[in-house]
Design a binder for these strands. Sequence first.
DNA 1: CGTTCTGTTGAGTCACCTCAAGCAGTGTGG
DNA 2: CCACACTGCTTGAGGTGACTCAACAGAACG
Lengths: 212, 212
Amino acid sequence: MQTDIHDAHNGFGTIRVYPDKTPIYHQGDSATRIFRVNSGVVMTFRLLEDSRRQITGFCTEGEFFGLSPHGDHMDGAVTVTSAGIQSVSISALETDAGLRAQIMNHSFRKIEDTQNLMMTLTKTSSEARVAAFLVMLADRRLRRQGPNADGLEVSLPMSRLDIADYLGLSRETVSRRLNELKSLGLIGLPDTHTAQINRFDGLRRCAGMMAA
Amino acid sequence: MQTDIHDAHNGFGTIRVYPDKTPIYHQGDSATRIFRVNSGVVMTFRLLEDSRRQITGFCTEGEFFGLSPHGDHMDGAVTVTSAGIQSVSISALETDAGLRAQIMNHSFRKIEDTQNLMMTLTKTSSEARVAAFLVMLADRRLRRQGPNADGLEVSLPMSRLDIADYLGLSRETVSRRLNELKSLGLIGLPDTHTAQINRFDGLRRCAGMMAA
DNA sequence: CGTTCTGTTGAGTCACCTCAAGCAGTGTGG
DNA sequence: CCACACTGCTTGAGGTGACTCAACAGAACG
């Protein structure tokens, strides 16, 4: 776990390494830069008046965050793990056509992701949501590694409460459902922050999706 | 209620008038055009395997819909009322910088809207959701008309089931909560497809937002 | 080695859903 | 003009899945 912040520069703006649980920006801050995760995990979230929280995304390597329609950030961003993060001034959008295309593509995808999350949150049981969360993490890992799905270990660097606030559940329910999936034999839980995928197809079915 | 379809052209692509309850495109269709509502109401929705439905938006005058990240539409679109709809080929995005900027702006806003909807759907009671729905419709109308909020009549051209599928509730619950808001004196229901806003601030408070 | 934070487990409650019946508006055929 | 069916909305009764509250266990940390 790193605890110091490094800075560097390249043609694409600033590169910076943050320790875990470090805020990148706050909800309501004026948005002057666009961010991209180089390594580690960052989560974005929105707060309500009564301090409840909806986590809107867990971003890993290659993903953009911090895009805002107006001047102000509509969400906050915090590192979950130590993370390397690139940033560019928002004004680069006007001059850099390649970046603009990348961002535009990302925006479309973000709409889709958000709608998918919304479907998951509103149309499925707590069990399906937890399963879907694990499937998402596993899929992400598979995209980078080979397709040996079963036996794969995914890390859960975030707390149960973070997962709960992402899935719109209570901490307790997340815990219950994880252990349920474990007792069904679909996953293993070697420790609290690691899940082992035993039967990926079963997990997918549980998440209410067709097998890949 | 119109039942015939008219066509016209201008520099911005095709303009067409559709009767109510007419599909514009289907989920999964290849996306070749971008649409804009000129008049009337259009709703977009996503279907799940078990034929449940999430309505992702009600679009009125000036709003774009049908934007897709890949080749395929991730949602379907149907007219709620008779509606005039402009469309442009998606290839116009490459040549028309002004259109591109408009779409980009719309995309950011769409992410925000979708996240707002998600917050409403996951963090609030059925009463707050119905109130929020009415507030949204009233706000939309106020943006075009003067700011005489109280006494304003908003039309609900969509069915109770449509509202339910937008708010992630059952038809029955929508009906119950509407009548509850009526008996609280916040709204009136002169007929099933019209709501009269009696106390806009009260409705806002009920929706869990601060007064404007 | 206490203290604190996170995660788990149990018991009870409640908001919304489901099922089922009733009702109003609209259209249709005799 | 009136039965009849049909569709969309409302209302009631009962069930249930996830939440809340509360206690406990285990890990992390000083």
